[in-house]
Nucleic acid binder design. Structure first.
Lengths: 217, 217
DNA sequence: ATAACCAATCTTGTATACAAGATTTTCTTG
DNA sequence: CAAGAAAATCTTGTATACAAGATTGGTTAT
């Protein structure tokens, strides 16, 4: 992997895990010293981060880590629940045995993580793996990747939400149910379930009060 | 608008209208002379164009206008038909009188364009205006903008397709029908119609033979 | 003490020289 | 004449000096 791609992944990871908090200033000169590289390639990285809403660039002022935009979170969940409802219906009529096996294996590993105490990072990675597998099995990985490019706000929201509520077991059970509904081709019930699964309680005032320092006004 | 934004819009327009054909080389030095600006800001523009798939960058070789990727066209139409089916259902239960009026006005103007002989550019702009208005009225303009960022292949495909078939009248009638179904809250029939409206015949071999020089292999 | 102004010092934005890889052309050699 | 190697000339990639706007701190005048 190129040096620029490495730097970008590093910064993305730090932003997504909130090691770099919203509002943090990302100075070009400071970063060029940290990564021992000149400002030019670093600016390329910062420009791309801004395009994917990881940061905001204020001309002649600075690059800062973006605040979490709940509007974006709501729009992305609407997009995903609509899309995944359709994808799951498609899969109900197509899903091969190898696909079912793959999904079950992911659920197995997720259950292990729950057993070992709450390793949120591992759990979320497997959560993404499950949903991504659904897209791939339906021939829609292209759309999964497209959504990822606009996913900063949703991913950080989800992480904070999970830190607060710790309902890993409930999410796991919903995954299990989705898989069963697919296998039994019960397309009617899939819609409401995926809707509830993705939407969680975005608008809870409780959440907004707890994490107001991270949120866009 | 900033000078960089102007340059980007100019280049985007030239690529979308196929004035710049797929495969055309965009040299940094040539463009910097054309726009009387140094390579640095020009590189910013080219980088963003590449991120939105208008171009491909081959390191140390050059920037070239991307070939139309029919896979991307198919994925975007799936995304749009799924999403707009849901949006139209939402609107059936919400749509205000002012919204209906706005949509009818767009259809009026589109009918005029058809009457005056086939001005494809004006027709397509109004086509976008109609669909965009649907998103906006449903509170989903965010998603319209998101899709636009991945729309190069679809937009060029649609233009070529229209040059070839000249069925503007048919598209207009489908718009009219969609609006009527919404007003009468006939949500059952919306799904199949929006699907047909957006998908057209992507996989027609005829199309691929006619425009193979523009297509990704 | 306070307010206004100015200067120093941040920030990113731009221009340009040079580096390094890819291609094309030319020249040499069989 | 043909083929291969070498050199010249393309391309983008990187480093850096300088430009210009924004902020901050201090100084001065009231």
């Amino acid at each position: 992997m190129s040096i620029k791609a490495e730097i970008m992944n590093t910064l993305k990871h730090e932003i997504l895990t909130l090691a770099l908090k919203p509002g943090t200033i990302l100075s070009e000169t400071a970063l060029s010293e940290r990564f021992q590289i000149s400002r030019t390639p670093l600016r390329d990285v910062l420009k791309q981060l801004a395009l994917e809403s990881y940061t905001d660039i204020y001309p002649k002022k600075g690059n800062i880590v973006s605040y979490i935009d709940l509007e974006s979170v709501e729009q992305i969940t609407y997009l995903r629940s609509t899309l995944e409802k359709e994808i799951l219906k498609d899969l109900s009529s197509q899903l091969l045995l190898t696909g079912v096996h793959e999904l079950k294996e992911i659920l197995e590993r997720q259950k292990e993580v729950i057993g070992k105490g709450n390793d949120i990072d591992s759990f979320l990675n497997l959560d993404d793996a499950f949903h991504r597998a659904l897209y791939r099995l339906a021939g829609r990985e292209f759309l999964w990747n497209l959504i990822q490019q606009s996913n900063v706000h949703y991913l950080r929201y989800r992480r904070l939400h999970m830190l607060k509520t710790e309902k890993l077991e409930g999410i796991w059970k919903e995954h299990q149910s989705l898989l069963e509904l697919m296998v039994h081709k019960d397309t009617e019930q899939i819609g409401p379930l995926i809707y509830h699964h993705l939407r969680e309680d975005i608008h809870s005032l409780d959440f907004q009060e707890n994490f107001s320092e991270y949120l866009k006004k």
